[in-house]
């Protein structure tokens, strides 16, 4: 089984879809000659040409909006918003148009659009280049939301996103791009709405997304040395959400920690906690702990940035707190 980086895995899904299907094309800032600011689309211009690998002006409204229009006409555009912070500029098109066309038209229109974007702290980009805004989009009926944490998941989920007939916001984490992992030769689409149990355990379930999946796995190793058995579940798609797998896991372990890099307040962990308390109330032996960033815009100085975002130690401490509750 070949090893691909997370970056290569995303590129592989794009290249295969472009190769197979004339209706797939890419639009975004600096994605052609430069290969994208994260080098994800490197080499695609050479293979597919400028008509299908389209550099755009710095116009997030028009990038997403024209993607919507082309999608409604039967294309499968994949647009790139360079940083998820810049999704804020395209919110009107995403929230009022992409998400609502199908319902507003009484089912006449579908919008098979994929919006790829990335973010994440850990390299001192400051407050406007590393936010984690995925929870915002979960709140909008009509959008699907994906957050891949491994190379294999990135490829299989992106493929499914491209071929989903709904608008999908596909989040990548910047610090995961160099991460290597085994990815099968044959592309297996991963259905949207199916969680992945990364590690089975008996005492605590950690439901983690993005970079925090890996922090949770580290924390789980460490907890093991303390005699605590930790299960790590990655929902992978936040909407639709695999409630069944998550609730079943917590019913088994009776304790739960949610973990993401986004701020805790109003974060996706809050939704997870609500789903879990409802589905596993009689099984829970401790309050659900939430791990996430402190409530502050990301500061520049590395020491401050590192203090704001969560790490494996934060997950570990949360695990210990839940276990300490009888």
């Amino acid at each position: 089984m070949p090893e691909l980086t997370y970056r290569e895995a995303v590129r592989d899904a794009l290249a295969r879809a472009l190769r197979e299907d004339e209706s797939v094309f890419l639009m975004g800032e600096d994605i052609a000659e430069m290969g994208g600011s994260m080098a994800v689309t490197q080499g695609l211009l050479a293979e597919f040409g400028p008509k299908r690998i389209r550099n755009t002006p710095i116009s997030e409204i028009a990038i997403v909006g024209s993607g919507i229009g082309a999608a409604i006409q039967g294309m499968r555009p994949v647009v790139e918003i360079m940083y998820e912070d810049f999704l804020t500029l395209s919110m009107e098109q995403l929230v009022n148009q992409a998400a609502k066309h199908r319902t507003m038209s009484g089912g006449q229109v579908t919008v098979p659009l994929t919006i790829r974007t990335q973010g994440g702290a850990g390299w001192s980009p400051g407050a406007q280049h590393a936010q984690q805004l995925e929870a915002w989009f979960v709140h909008v009926p009509g959008l699907k939301v994906v957050f891949a944490s491994t190379p294999e998941d990135a490829r299989g989920l992106l493929w499914s996103s491209i071929y989903d007939d709904n608008p999908v916001v596909f989040f990548e984490h910047r610090t995961l791009y160099p991460l290597k992992g085994d990815v099968p030769d044959r592309l297996e689409p991963i259905p949207l709405g199916k969680a992945r149990v990364h590690r089975e355990g008996e005492d605590v379930t950690v439901v983690a997304t993005g970079r925090l999946v890996h922090e949770a796995l580290k924390a789980a190793e460490e907890a093991g040395t303390e005699g605590i058995s930790v299960e790590v579940v990655d929902p992978r798609t936040l909407q639709p959400l695999d409630e069944e797998t998550i609730v079943a896991s917590v019913r088994k372990t009776t304790r739960c920690v949610t973990a993401h890099e986004a701020v805790v307040r109003g974060g996706f962990g809050a939704e997870l906690a609500a789903v879990i308390q409802h589905g596993a109330f009689d099984w829970l032996d401790a309050p659900i702990e939430r791990v996430g960033a402190k409530f502050a815009p990301l500061p520049f100085a590395p020491a401050m940035e590192q203090w704001v975002v969560p790490h494996a130690e934060d997950v570990l401490e949360a695990i210990r707190r839940t276990v300490a509750r009888g």
Binding site: A62, G65, I68, E92, Q93, S105, V109
Partner: peptide, 28 residues
């Protein structure tokens, strides 16, 4: 909306429908 006759929808957000038309034209 009436997709059958080419009406892709009226829009309640001022200017909201304009970029979609750029995309439709791009598809054509």
């Amino acid at each position: 909306y009436d997709v059958e006759v080419g009406n892709l929808g009226a829009n309640a957000v001022v200017a909201g429908g304009i970029p979609g038309i750029v995309g439709a034209a791009l598809a054509f």
